[in-house]
Design a protein around this nucleic acid. Structure first.
Lengths: 138, 138
DNA sequence: AGAATAAGTAAGCATGCGTAGACGATACAC
DNA sequence: GTGTATCGTCTACGCATGCTTACTTATTCT
């Protein structure tokens, strides 16, 4: 058998990774996109929702539902920017940061388990290549 | 910044890999699923379409459209199994094999280009890990 | 006052998937 | 033979996703 193609391998692996990630997020009341949006707020709050949409690659109109959900769970706040009250500044709440960190830890644990049979050197190379390939796409 | 998550990296990378693969397949008149189905016929012909559907993970009813397209292009044949004429044996034609090999070569070339900046050792480790992670999922 | 922008809301359209029911052709058990 | 089951096919439906468009509201800027 020939070496399988990248697309095939990546599709398969991504599918299982997502399948394992979903219950972790569901446990916190989150869907994939909710988590992606939440994650994008780690570094700093988003000055406008349009900017947040652009940063996450989420459609502007679909982002709203995610923010609704995150707000409902008390993980983020949407507050009018005092400087320009048309804008809504989206920030993590303390609870939001707590949940985010917990998800991150759980996901990390899941990944460790997924990669448990991979020799450390190979794992490092694997992550190095992944990061390198993705980086220049920014 | 923390190490990015596997899910994130895989999603990004898969997206670009697919984006680069699509035109190659379109060049042969194929969509992703057409190619996946075609590819599944490399080793041996599929004794029944139901089996082919199972092998590719494609829904039984959706497979039909792919086979129609592949047949239209003269890449596969659907012939009643003499032993049980309810079954249709799906096989590659000579042209089908030719196109398949051409796509494979083009895709391989695309992958080489995608990975051109990755040191050979890392690349080997990368592919080794990918294969290893996907393998036990069967 | 009037134009422009941000957020929210809704509607329409396209895609893709899976399910279910019906059909004809065929096979098989009795 | 007759009845039952299976295979491939087709059609119709429901579901989820996503993009585009347009309209409303609040707010800002000129």
């Amino acid at each position: 058998m020939e070496r399988p193609e990248l697309g095939y391998l990546l599709t398969r692996l991504l599918r299982t990774a997502m399948a394992r990630e979903e219950p972790i997020l569901a446990n916190a009341g989150l869907r994939m996109w909710d988590y992606a949006v939440l994650s994008a707020l780690t570094e700093n709050a988003a000055p406008t929702q349009a900017q947040l949409a652009a940063a996450t690659g989420r459609d502007k109109t679909r982002l709203i539902g995610n923010l609704d959900q995150l707000e409902r769970l008390g993980l983020v706040t949407r507050e009018p920017d005092p400087a320009d009250r048309r804008n809504r500044v989206v920030s993590l709440t303390a609870e939001g940061r707590r949940i985010l960190e917990r998800c991150r830890a759980d996901i990390r644990e899941m990944e460790d388990d997924l990669l448990r049979d991979v020799p450390p050197g190979d794992r490092e190379a694997f992550e190095r290549v992944l990061t390198r390939l993705v980086d220049p796409l920014d």
